[in-house]
Amino acid sequence: MSSLYTYLFIAALLFSLGIFGVFQRRSLIGMLIAIELMLNAASINFMAFNKFLAPDPIVGQIYTLFIMGIAAAEAAIALSIIVALFRRLRSINIERAQELRG
């Protein structure tokens, strides 16, 4: 059982790092990487729960595959919007994008 907690601990650590990164990073690419960390934390959780607890030994792995695929799609959309923003502002710093306020 203790090894399950090791995995959960690592996942929680990755997740916290991701949350911290999203709030602390000013570069959009950095934020995107932080979000990927959070997704990977969820993947580790799924795999660990699956290995140690779940009766059906394949569900967690399928989840992880789906998460990887969807994260790739997300990165593609995010990067395309980041490129569009870069063309306009010549910067990918989120602080520069402050026209909308109120």
């Binding site: 996942a11 997740f15 991701g18 949350i19 999203v22 959009l28 934020m31 995107l32 979000i35 959070m38 997704l39 934390a41 969820a42 959780n45 998460i67 997300e74 959309i77 995010a78 919007i81 980041i82 569009a84 923003l85 306009r88 989120i94 994008a97 026209e99 909308l100």
Partner: peptide, 22 residues
């Protein structure tokens, strides 16, 4: 302002969906 709105939407959305997945 559209791209700026788009990137904000995406970042908040992606973060919350990662939280949801966790």
């Amino acid at each position: 302002i559209d791209v700026e709105a788009g990137i904000k939407y995406l970042m908040v959305g992606a973060t919350s969906s990662a939280v949801m997945l966790f």
